[in-house]
């Protein structure tokens, strides 16, 4: 109690003195100390926070940049697709100009529903002048023949279908044969005599003797010379078509 009274009296005396004489005891030194401590704490906190903030900032920036890269890639793909389409169409145009018996240019809209028949549906039909047994070609070579036609659509039988046959010849030796589909990606060249020398890599073109396909259209190249076929007098020759059906998008129909 005494101590409390003493403190109270001392406080009143001190406050009375200071109200008359001004502040006698400065606390600025504590402020400075505290500020230094705050600054030190702040710098330590900043030092700890900075990497995390940078990471967050980089993450945001990274996300934005990734998004931008995706957009640019998509845009580039669009341009590339347009460029490729332009190239394809130019090739088709050149091909069209080379063939006087040009009928129509058709786009592949669907493939046949059956696993065992290799056919495509085209977006042009008899309304565009397409008829049965007409030839479909691409800038790479023979694609197939038209097997059925409706007003607006037609069906293309591909080279590798087992029902496909064409009269062909080897470009170098002028040896004739019959090209048949096998149901796989390759065709076979039949009825080439065992005595005819055939080398792998020889180009196969249509001969026109079947009165179906115009002569001179590139078909493929001999990919395998397999010797005598089934004890007969003919050779077993495999032909790899130039035109891969999986890559076919547009074809030109010629008479």
């Amino acid at each position: 109690m005494f101590l409390f009274l003493a403190v109270a009296v001392f406080s009143f005396v001190l406050m009375t003195y200071q109200s008359r004489k001004g502040h006698t005891l400065s606390v600025d030194f504590t402020g400075g100390l505290l500020n230094s401590m705050h600054a030190a704490t702040q710098s330590v906190t900043d030092a700890i926070k900075r990497p995390f903030r940078m990471i967050a900032l980089r993450d945001a920036e990274n996300t934005a940049l990734k998004k931008r890269v995706q957009e640019l890639l998509l845009e580039r793909e669009k341009y590339r697709e347009a460029m490729l389409e332009d190239k394809r169409l130019r090739e088709l145009l050149a091909l069209r100009e080379r063939h006087k018996d040009y009928v129509a240019t058709a786009r592949v809209i669907a493939r046949g529903i059956d696993n065992w028949t290799h056919t495509f549906f085209l977006d042009k039909g008899s309304a565009d002048g397409i008829g049965k047994d007409m030839t479909a070609i691409t800038p790479k070579g023979l694609a197939g023949k038209i097997t059925s036609v409706t007003g607006s659509y037609s069906r293309l039988l591909l080279l590798n279908d087992i029902n496909f046959s064409a009269s062909v010849r080897l470009q170098g030796s002028r040896t004739e044969g019959v090209l048949s589909g096998t149901g796989t990606s390759r065709c076979i060249l039949k009825y080439v005599s065992f005595e005819e020398p055939v080398k792998a890599g020889e180009i196969v073109i249509t001969s026109g003797l079947d009165m179906l396909f115009p002569p001179g259209i590139p078909v493929g190249y001999v990919s395998k010379v397999g010797g005598r076929a089934d004890e007969s007098n003919f050779q077993y020759l495999e032909v790899q078509p130039f035109q891969d059906s999986a890559e076919m998008e547009e074809v030109i129909i010629v008479k």
């Binding site: 059956d114 696993n115 065992w116 028949t117 087992i162 096998t182 149901g183 796989t184």
Partner: peptide, 21 residues
């Protein structure tokens, strides 16, 4: 698939090599 392949092979002609089928 097998039924279609076999019936086609029996009644028409083999639509593809057996391994491909």
């Amino acid at each position: 698939n097998l039924v279609v392949f076999l019936t086609k092979a029996m009644f028409d002609r083999m639509p593809a090599l057996f391994s491909t089928a």
